[in-house]
Structure formats: C-alpha cells, structure tokens
C-alpha cells in the first residue's frame, strides 16, 4: 500500500485561507485533513499522526490584541509539547500570512537562536505596514537559504500576492537579524520585478532588509507573508491573459510539492523499508 504524506491544515475561528491551502497540498500528492484547533485540544485528532502542520491565512480570533497572537499562545501553551515533538521528529511546518504571524508570535520562528537551552520566545514580529493600511497586491520575491521548502527555486524570482495589514518583519535587535542571515534562515526577500532593490510597493510593508519569509535553523519550518497557495495555478496570475505559454501551475506550486516530496523521500520511504 502506498502511503501519502498526511497534512494537517489547522483551522480556528477566523481562519479563511484553509480551502486553497488544502487544495494546494492535495494537488501536490498529499492527504489533507482540515482540523479545527478544538479537535486537537479535545484529543480527537493527534498531531503525531501527521507529517506536515500547515497554518493558513485569515484573521484568527479577529486578530484581536494583535495579529495571530491568541492562536500563537493557544498553540504554545496548550499544544507546545506536541508541537515540540512534532518538530523533533523531523517533520515539517508551514505558515502563510496569518499562519506566519502565529508562528513568529509563538516563537516557532525564527526558533531558539542564541542558545538551544533557551525556551522558545518571541524574537521578531510582524507589525503594521508602513503604508498604514491593508493592501492586496502582487510582489516579486528572491529565494535564499537552503530550506527543504524552496529546493530548486534558488535562482528564480517568484511572483506571489500579499494581502495583509500587519506584515512588516522586524527583529527585536540587530543580533537576531545577523543570526538569521548567518544561519541562512532568510528564505524570501521582496525585490523589484527585475530582481533589484525594491522600493514601495515592491516591498509592500517596509520589512527590514526586505524580508518576506524565514525558516528555523533546520529549514524545515517556513513562514512567509506572501500567499503561494494563491498562485498555485497559472490562471491565478494577474496577467495570465498576456502570457503566450502558460502551464497548469503557478509560481507557488513548487513550495507545496517540495514539502510533499520531502516527506515521501525522508519519512515515508523509511517507514516503507521497515515494513
């Protein structure tokens, strides 16, 4: 029997990009369950039964107090141990937009930096856009680092949409920023359409050093503000009618495929051998 990578797309009050996230993973060969956080808390669903934890975009709990804050604490306090062992097992996590805000505020990203013994704490944040407003627009991204999620994308410029009011990435101090760069934890930076230095609106929110997405030290946990699941299909491109040769898939598809492939190659193949 062929086992498929099992993906949990986590929902709660105010999650709203779960459908397209589930679609992206399913089309990439994953088996997806949309799971409400209450189901995990009640023990009806177990995180350990899955390979990838995906936290989609939305306005969890209304983004009350600050974006993603309440779900971040809920995960940290109530499911922290489960998530800890999930990560220790070599599994994958991805957070997009509000999911990224949750992961940053829960301290899953950038993760224990200064020393491994320090308990996870928040060392960066995603704050209000410099424009002072919610904006939906498409951005160009340069890919960096060695994350499993960005395999094969090194020299590409990706074109993805952002849609947020609180997406400006800042670190608590300069050291954290230097650490991120030294460890290769910067995954995506905003750039101009030709790959050059971006200005607003190329960098849509004023993020420091144009950072749009980061990973943990292992590269297995990825968070980003732009929405790869909204450019999974080529027809989602804002000017697909101008393109002569369009395939089926858009720029974001490779990210989901990488996640599924990684599980197939590293976690499922081993299981199959042992069976």
């Amino acid at each position: 029997m062929i086992r498929k990578p099992k993906i949990i797309v986590l929902r709660t009050a105010g999650t709203n990009c779960d459908g397209e996230m589930a679609f992206a993973f399913e089309k990439s060969g994953g088996e997806v369950d949309l799971v409400h956080v209450n189901q995990l808390l009640r023990g009806e669903v177990h995180l350990q039964d899955y390979h990838i934890l995906a936290i989609p975009g939305g306005f969890t709990y209304g983004d009350d107090i600050s974006s993603g804050r309440i779900l971040a604490n809920e995960l940290n306090v109530k499911l922290g141990q489960q998530i800890g062992s999930f990560i220790a097992d070599g599994k994958l996590m991805i957070g997009v937009c509000n999911g990224f805000q949750v992961m940053i505020k829960a301290g899953f990203l950038p993760g224990g930096l200064a020393s491994a013994s320090t308990p996870v704490s928040q060392t960066a944040t995603l704050t209000f856009n410099d424009s002072g407003k919610f904006e939906d627009r498409w951005v160009h991204l340069k890919v960096e680092g060695k994350s499993v999620w960005t395999q094969g994308l090194d020299n590409n410029i990706l074109y993805l949409p952002v849609a947020h009011a609180e997406g400006k990435f800042v670190t608590i101090d300069q050291d954290v920023l230097e650490w991120l760069k030294t460890n290769g934890q910067v995954a995506f930076r905003y750039c101009s359409s030709s790959g050059g230095e971006p200005h607003y609106p190329d960098n849509p929110n004023g993020s420091v050093e144009n950072i749009a997405g980061i990973t943990d030290k292992t590269g297995r946990i990825l968070g980003l503000m732009p929405h790869p699941e909204r450019h999974f299909l080529s027809l989602q491109h804002p000017s697909w009618t101008r393109q002569k040769h369009k395939g089926t898939f858009g720029d974001g598809a490779r990210i989901f495929q990488n996640g599924v492939d990684y599980i197939n190659n590293n976690l499922l193949s081993k299981t199959t051998v042992s069976v």
Binding site: C17, G57, K133, E135, D136, A163, R230, L233, S239
Partner: peptide, 23 residues
C-alpha cells in the same frame, strides 16, 4: 479602494478588478 479589499482570498480569481501589465 480596491487594494484594501482582499479580492483574491479563496484562490478563485481569474480576472481580477485590476489587470494589465502593471496590474
């Protein structure tokens, strides 16, 4: 006005409210 609305959530948009070479 248009940019303040999320016109792409649910991933279904094919022809968006803003189109063309510069969107």
């Amino acid at each position: 006005v248009i940019r303040q609305y999320d016109h792409e959530v649910q991933g279904a948009s094919v022809i968006k409210p803003l189109v063309g070479v510069g969107c």
